[in-house]
Write a protein that binds this DNA or RNA. Structure first.
Lengths: 141, 141
DNA sequence: ATCATACTGAAAACCGTTCGCAATCCCAGC
DNA sequence: GCTGGGATTGCGAACGGTTTTCAGTATGAT
């Protein structure tokens, strides 16, 4: 079967190779924020002939085609998620590494306002919150 | 004379070597967000014997001592600014690379609220806005 | 099927950063 | 002041994530 992302790629006119099909499938099935190594691991379990270089290249291709989005969570490597229309941000649980997505129209509006007051038009932005669960806040790490 | 940051380092009990003095001076005089290479360039112009490895080590030392703060602006290298009590964020002019600092208590409050609603206590956060000047927004890059 | 073109795998190059080690410096104690 | 020993330095090598090079392979327009 054709994965969601594969359909999107075809739609955008990208040449579909076996590797790209597999990577698209992996990304379609992911509901987390895998890094390149993790995508490669999952892809290789479907077709072991896929090299990490190809994963890197494909991620870039898909990013440029706006099929996926790069997420920089400050851990020194790129993570990815499917592109989506709605802006959202990430709350990272520093205890477990769990990533929680959230959106806030008010926050978006406030950012727009701040930028406008500074004489700028927003072309991109990012917000990350690092936190610990409220009910564990006094525990030792 | 003793630079602002040098005094702070002494106060924190750090051993003051010639190199650290020079780097402290460079950072005290900086009103931008230099990366390690730039700090090294400026330090070397005062004392050419300073190696980049020492700059890296000293930046980490000063960061750990909370004398300076690391700023990750998504360009793949660490930038630094003097530590300050008030939270602020950065608007990056994508045309020129200029960095504008801004603070917004309302934004801080909103972030706190969002985290609390998700059941988390904030231990860190970061917000960057990338923008172009309003009066140039329709120009070609 | 054929063919030009685009893609792939493997290894090398890259870039920012850290580390290992021998030489050097700082400063507490004399 | 001088000294001794632990901290710091400079150098180059190593590192981790990412990009590139290049020869070989696959793709899909014809």
């Amino acid at each position: 079967m054709t994965s969601r992302l594969e359909a999107l790629c075809v739609e955008k006119g990208l040449k579909m190779t076996g590797q790209r099909r597999v990577i698209s499938q992996v990304l379609s099935e992911a509901d987390d924020h895998p890094d390149v190594e993790e995508v490669h691991r999952r892809a290789a379990s479907i077709d072991p002939r896929i090299s990490i270089a190809t994963v890197y290249r494909t991620m870039r291709l898909l990013e440029d085609a706006q099929v996926i989005e790069r997420v920089d969570l400050g851990d020194g490597r790129a993570r990815y998620e499917e592109a989506s229309a709605d802006h959202h941000h990430h709350l990272i649980d520093t205890r477990t590494g769990r990533i929680i997505e959230f959106a806030s129209p008010e926050l978006e509006a406030m950012k727009e306002r701040i930028a406008r007051e500074l004489g700028y038009k927003i072309v991109g932005h990012r917000l990350e919150i690092y936190g610990v669960p409220l009910d564990e806040e006094d525990e030792r790490q």
